[in-house]
Simulated scan of single mutants.
Amino acid sequence: MLTSKQLQDIEMLQKECEEHDRLQLKLNWEMLRNRESDQLDFLHYENDILIAFLGLYPFGSTVEVCGMVKPNERRNKHFSKLFQQGMASVKQNAFKKILLNTPATSSEAKDFLAKQGALYAFSEHQMKWQETPLNEVDGFTLRQANEEDLDMRVRLDVEAFGIAKEDAFEMEAKRTEDELMIDVNGETIGKIRVDKEETEAWIYGFAILTEHQGKGIGRKVLNQVVKEQSELGRSVHLEVETKNAHALGLYESVGFNVVHAQDYYLYK
């Protein structure tokens, strides 16, 4: 579990790196603020100043890895040491798949990953909604997810995102807060998660059963969620893999534009 000071130091280091490199790091702040394990975060301090950070983000048997180093300390191998510690923890926790995450524009990160023998796997676009007129919609209901929805949530993760069933079950069993189920004519046909912060809302895990796609339901759901959050004064964001052309087109049709890209590398 990270202390409030550690969280503050990580946030300050993130801002420094992003401003210096003109990019955006993906540090999964929702997970950082709710850590239950002390084996997932690695920090290097000097004179009470955070110099380098590496975080592990488990998703079932897969773990994502992201980190950063102060710009003027990058030749001192601080990150290499944290990476070794992180990989030791990965081995100890028996994760089956390791994905290293870097901003698409970071040449320094890609040089480091190449030296580790990591192989490019896929890219992910971060999108932000640009103010667009949205109409009132109907024909569906959004309701809070509950324990009775677990099987459907797992099914949607497997069918829509290719997640292994055991991993989907592990993740969904821990998550009901902010997850909404999509009902049409009394039948549950999809889900969407909205992570609400003070000034931002992030959309995750948006999925609709295959047999109900192509009927305009997805566009209507997005329309309503974006309209509600924007009217509350929040900017609305989401992430989508570049290979998912259908989803990318759907989001663009509602007013989302790509603002950043993250590259993922497979590490053995």
Rank of each mutant, 00 (worst) to 15 (best):
T141R: 05
E170M: 09
L82Q: 13
V184W: 05
R22W: 06
E124S: 10
S107T: 13
D38I: 01
Q92W: 11
D48V: 04
A245T: 14
N257D: 09
G67I: 15
I192Q: 02
N257H: 09
T210D: 11
N101L: 11
S37G: 04
G218M: 05
T176L: 00
Y57L: 11
K15H: 09
P103S: 14
A94Q: 15
L250Q: 06
E177L: 00
G186T: 01
G55P: 04
E252H: 12
T210Y: 09
N28Q: 13
D195H: 00
E131V: 01
V258W: 03
D21K: 02
L142G: 09
L99Y: 09
R234T: 08
E166M: 08
F59E: 15
L100H: 03
V226C: 01
E211L: 11
H78F: 15
L238T: 06
N135K: 12
L156P: 02
G139Y: 08
I217G: 06
T105W: 14
V254Y: 07
F122L: 08
C17P: 07
K15V: 10
S106D: 15
V226L: 09
D21M: 03
L99W: 05
T3N: 01
V258E: 12
W129Q: 03
A94L: 12
A245F: 13
R193L: 00
F206S: 08
I10F: 01
G214A: 10
A201M: 07
F206I: 08
A114T: 13
N28E: 14
Y120H: 08
R175C: 01
R22T: 04
M68A: 15
H260Y: 11
V225E: 02
K220G: 12
V184N: 06
D38L: 02
R143I: 00
S61R: 11
T102A: 15
